[in-house]
Design a protein around this nucleic acid. Structure first.
Length: 572
RNA sequence: GAUUUGCUAGCUCAGUAGGUAGAGCACAUCCCUUUUAAGGAUGGGGUCCUGGGUUCGAAUCCCAGGCAGAUCACCA
């Protein structure tokens, strides 16, 4: 019944599964299989002159070379692959050769998970291998794996379709083992940051993901609803305002690896959910924070790569301290030759036009400057570079610059043409903060969908007093992209957001039976693509009759064809 | 959202100025056996993304849609 929907190879595997059961072999055993080493450990530690080394290991069969009574398989575990030599008389020393002849040769496939015990030796071809003395089925795989082969560093038939790789990451990880490296490095990066911050006695905290008022960044949120409270809640776009509340509460340093959610476009630099490290430290300013970022990132790069120099695509990036520092005005001066520091809004508008920088009428002074920077400077900054001192209009949470009016004490770190982090001397003047929020409200009314919302509770906290504080946000995904040389954010997220897979809507067999269609024809009708009875009724009966008879003939099903009249009655 | 490329067997891909759908790997049966992207023989396997249109005839040409990639715009 189901078999028409399965591929030939899937049917063969299901048949093998029931054969195993018939032989009294549980294809999904419950018990522990004791493993005492990994493939990598064997390859690393084996010595030809060492005494017999008995191993017990488990993994997935990735290839099989079967030759009569001796065979070779490649077994893959978490750490890599090793060849296993399977000889009939080793596996079956007694009369009964079923385990080798039937189970191993016919009922096991690529992709099955087995446990093997035996000892290590080197073959005539010089390959370190496991001589299997026992073999146990641990899991029968019902779908064929894409087979990726490799010789001399050349990969054949690589599994590359990005759609399948991202949707079925499990499969990607099985057949493209290098993918695993990327994710391990991502975790190493996070661990390195965490170790660094813990060593400074900062406290890792958790703050709400569901927030009644979203804030801390300029972005559109995801909206949800809490039944019991009868209240709209938002998935956080940032956790900044909560971490600052904790500084108010008396913590000197708090940080969180925060999953944030922004309801905006998706491309190779943006996923709707992404991870930021946010850090707030009391009694510090943004200059201090720049030094911390340099040190922390440099350290992480060294811990991943053993060096401060790495290659990203065609580029060579050096994270060696100190990094270049420019004010935003200097950066614009450098790339365009124009000093914008004294210009008013109209003059900036005119400058944008001269520079071919796209603008629109809603843009205020700050947006115009930011736009010039974004178009003319950002993409040119390849080596890690700090850009400091941003226009106040763009930075409602940052403290006013200590000496230059119209600017705030803010920096971003740009690398490979992309912003990697954002930090301020945090605004702790509650009166100023309220005014800034109110300016944002006006922008919001002008149509800026990303304008910030006024958070009364946050202002109340500030009114109790927050010490001077420096705060930082680092995009973990983007940094991971650079450190793992990944061209897309999807490559550093296990399960990137994808459009839903097309789902077939279908009626069950009973619905077809109700039309008076005999069981044996129902599967055929479904196989022909008629999955809904309503659709089926619209079909020309003569056409359906022809298709069914054709199918019967083609697949040599040996069914007695229905008459045209009978088919017409089904559809009536 | 715009532009563009792609979608054919489990995987990687060919394909014909429109005429019954191909290869390699994988799979099945068999041969050989310390082999290694094993080799040899034979065989099975397809809604050529979906739906319309043009046509005697469409995987191929046209239109619409789906999904994915790339580039651009907004954003981290």
């Amino acid at each position: 019944m189901q078999s028409l929907n399965l591929s030939e190879q899937e049917i063969i595997r299901r048949d093998a599964l029931s054969e195993l059961v018939k032989l009294g072999i549980d294809p999904y055993p419950a018990g522990e299989f004791p493993v005492n080493c990994s493939t990598a450990e064997i390859l690393e530690k084996f010595r030809d002159d060492a005494p017999d080394w008995h191993v017990s290991l488990a993994g997935r069969i990735m290839s099989r070379r079967i030759m009569g009574n001796a065979s070779f398989i490649e077994l893959q575990d978490e750490k890599g692959r090793i060849q296993v030599y399977v000889k009939r008389d080793n596996l079956c020393p007694e009369e009964d050769k079923t385990l080798y002849n039937t189970v191993f040769k016919h009922l096991l496939d690529n992709g099955d998970i087995i446990g093997v015990t035996g000892h290590i030796f080197r073959t005539q071809m010089g390959e370190i291998s496991v001589k299997a003395m026992e073999l146990k089925v641990l899991c029968k795989s019902l779908r064929p794996l894409p087979i990726v082969k490799e010789k001399d560093g050349v990969v054949y038939d690589a599994f590359t379709d990005p759609d399948q790789r991202y949707r079925q990451r499990y499969l990607d990880l099985v057949v493209n083992p290098k993918i695993k490296e990327t994710f391990i490095q991502r975790t190493q990066l996070i661990n390195s940051f965490r170790d660094f911050l813990n060593s400074k006695q900062y406290i890792e905290v958790e703050t709400p993901v569901l927030q009644p008022v979203y804030g801390g960044a300029a972005a559109r949120p995801f909206k949800t609803y809490h039944n019991t409270l009868d209240q709209t809640l938002y998935l956080r776009i940032a956790n900044e305002l909560y971490l600052k509340r904790l500084i108010v509460g008396g913590f000197n340093g708090v940080y969180e690896f925060a999953r944030d959610f922004r309801n905006e476009g998706m491309d190779r630099f943006h996923n709707p959910e992404f991870t930021q490290l946010e850090l707030y430290v009391a009694y510090k300013d943004y200059n201090w924070m720049m030094n911390l970022v340099e040190e922390m990132v440099e350290k992480a790069v060294i811990s991943l790569h053993g060096s401060t120099e790495i290659s990203v695509g065609e580029m060579n990036i050096s994270f060696r301290r100190p990094w270049k520092r420019f004010t935003m005005y200097e950066a614009i001066m450098e790339s365009t030759g124009i000093d914008i520091s004294g210009l008013d809004e109209n003059q900036l508008f005119e400058t944008c036009r001269q520079l071919d920088v796209p603008v629109d009428n809603t843009m205020g002074k700050g947006r115009l400057i930011d736009q010039i920077f974004g178009v003319k400077c950002e993409s040119l900054l390849i080596q890690p570079t700090f850009i400091t001192d941003y226009p106040i209009e763009m930075s409602p949470l940052a403290k006013k610059h200590r000496s230059i009016t119209g600017l705030v004490e803010r920096f971003e770190m740009i690398c490979c043409g992309k912003e990697l982090c954002n930090a301020y001397s945090e605004l702790n003047d509650p009166v100023d903060q309220r005014e800034r929020f109110e300016e944002q409200l006006i922008l919001g009314k002008r149509g800026d969908e990303e304008a910030m919302i006024l958070d009364e509770d946050f202002l109340r906290a500030l009114e109790f007093g927050m010490p001077p504080t420096s705060g930082l946000g680092i995009g973990i995904d983007r940094l991971a992209m650079i450190l793992t040389n990944s061209p897309s954010i999807q490559d550093v997220l296990f399960f990137p957001q994808m459009r839903p897979e097309k789902k077939m809507v279908r009626d069950d067999d009973e619905a077809f039976a109700k039309m008076g269609i005999p069981t044996e024809w129902i599967t055929l009708i479904q196989k022909l693509g008629y999955l809904l009875t309503d659709e089926l009724r619209k079909v020309n009966p003569n056409r359906l009759h022809q298709e069914l008879c054709g199918m019967n003939k083609k697949h040599k099903l040996g069914l007695v064809n229905p008459s045209q009249d009978e088919v017409r009655k089904w559809l009536a």
